[in-house]
Design a protein around this nucleic acid. Sequence first.
DNA 1: CTTTCAATTTGAAACGTTTGCAATTCGACT
DNA 2: AGTCGAATTGCAAACGTTTCAAATTGAAAG
Lengths: 350, 350
Amino acid sequence: MSGAKTLKELAGRLDVSITTVSRALSGDPAIALKTRERVAEAARKYGYVPNTAARALVSGRSGFVGLVLPIRGPHLVDSFLGEFVTGLGEGLVSRGSHLILATAPEGETELKVLRHLVESGRCDGVVVTRIAETDERVRYLTERGVPFVAHGQLIDDSTSYNWIDTDGARAFAEAFEMLYALGHRHFGLVTISEPMTFRHRRQDGLADAIARRGDPDVRLDVATAPRFDRPARIEAINRMLAAPERPTAIIGLFDDLALTVMEEATRAGLSIPGDLSVVGFDNILASAYAPPGLTTFDALIQQASRDIGQLVVEIIEQRPGEPRNKLIQPAFVSRASHGPAPETRTTRRN
Amino acid sequence: MSGAKTLKELAGRLDVSITTVSRALSGDPAIALKTRERVAEAARKYGYVPNTAARALVSGRSGFVGLVLPIRGPHLVDSFLGEFVTGLGEGLVSRGSHLILATAPEGETELKVLRHLVESGRCDGVVVTRIAETDERVRYLTERGVPFVAHGQLIDDSTSYNWIDTDGARAFAEAFEMLYALGHRHFGLVTISEPMTFRHRRQDGLADAIARRGDPDVRLDVATAPRFDRPARIEAINRMLAAPERPTAIIGLFDDLALTVMEEATRAGLSIPGDLSVVGFDNILASAYAPPGLTTFDALIQQASRDIGQLVVEIIEQRPGEPRNKLIQPAFVSRASHGPAPETRTTRRN
DNA sequence: CTTTCAATTTGAAACGTTTGCAATTCGACT
DNA sequence: AGTCGAATTGCAAACGTTTCAAATTGAAAG
């Protein structure tokens, strides 16, 4: 009753060999069914739980997947990280794997932590997120043959690897079509200057949609600022808002930018969506609360990360194989920050 | 150059024994300094990284601390989980430990996952959060002698264990004093019916502060609803707001409740803080955005979890010892949802 | 040149599991 | 009764590390 911590103890109580117990527990059909049942029952009764370290040592598999926490990023001001690890954990556990979270100590680069993580055998595969245009982590993992899944894409799609991404291009095309249908012709895009692939995907999606429409009246202004430089961002936005011909609809590369647009526009006395429509991307928590409620696209982080978790385990188990990729379709979230283009109203009034 | 994955390989290249290499790398002074340096350099050169599984097997230590992700809770709609794991990771890594995140599979209880986690030897200690009044996890861990730190307290403080908690009692006392000083005498408290210890701590803090003040004019109404039953919550709040004598200041047990109060009050045509002051607790992200901005207390999750991470490693290393406890002082966040009691204004006007 | 002792290094066991291969058991068939 | 083959079970090695106890080295002392 007191418990059997090891195979040896369990084997002793059952009067069989360690081998038999090990095989029985793993369901090896070479062991008589009766024996298997007897062992299983005893294991349950004595609360036997196999030692992970020993198993990992002999099998070369740790049963873990690693995720390196991005150095102090914007994660903490929204629910991204929470959703991501929750979804990832769900995906992994549904495939019998578990999650290790590695934090970079002061002054260590994320890549170094990643190397240590995989080379110490602590995990069998990893997940990397926030992929940059040319990402050193992706290069390292590919070269070393470590099973991994990237949440996001490289800018250069000639290297092949496993990724799952949100279809930003499609969302931005949808945003354009919706606003175009509402009468908007003069668009603004607020974007960042950093080399993140998602920036290009979304911008290209927008540009392509405009091109497809082929309406010569459509005009697109672009305001750019460094990602974390808030004063610069505000200045760029205000320049766009103060221009003699102001866009009637502004799309933010992500919600944080769109929210700043709403703040600044409101401060400048513009009404939303009366004078200006604003659309974002991500559906961060604040978007629901910032008046009048930001229309945006939900990136479905948790669903994406659940898929990532399942995929990485599959890759670990049947490596190597064809690289697997998947685009998640973001969900349109209609709130109150978009409406008909103001010209329409003016016309109506006259 | 190509790399040495094991001690044996490294020892081969250096023409010394495995033992010597192992000792040298661990800084054993029995090994000649010259040898130690030679080994260290070779290890670096060949990129040797010790195998975690082997080390864990022999030492009985995994180097991991476990956290069981609470089943689908309110974590995902705010940044709690992200902040918590980030802080925890920081605390652990600063003490040389790492974090395992265990997710409960469909239909498994959190306790069962916890048991499996510790009994498989996957981790040397655990962290539990969202402590209930009588928490089965705390009981299990205590009985089994597993090193752990609780983020929160049991209602019964006779059992001793390690915990770090946010000082809700103090915050609620402060809230009362601040509002009292603004002239408020009629208070409302919106709370939940679930057996969570933090509920009592905060309520008691408020009640004690009122008692200490000893002003017979002070009155406190309480509205209670199940934690996740939104309709019931709204109804309870509206009952409080519609009462013939309505409180002039309402305190929410946590921000989510306070935000609902603000919504309902606004819907009922009350102005905040003109007609009603509202104060919350937690400082979730939405509190900054919901108009007019919720005055609240920041629970300093990340700081608390960093402390928890450091503490749990200390406990693992020098177990057993006196239970260690710590109260984190929440930080007052003054926004625009509180102001002078309406009577004051009326008086002034007359 | 031997002895002694400290400084340094090494052999071998142990941690708990998996697994290739060999050994045993057992019933059935001759 | 002996033999064969299938069905079971067990032995022992291996995974890479740590660590106890023992062996080796080298220098100083006799």
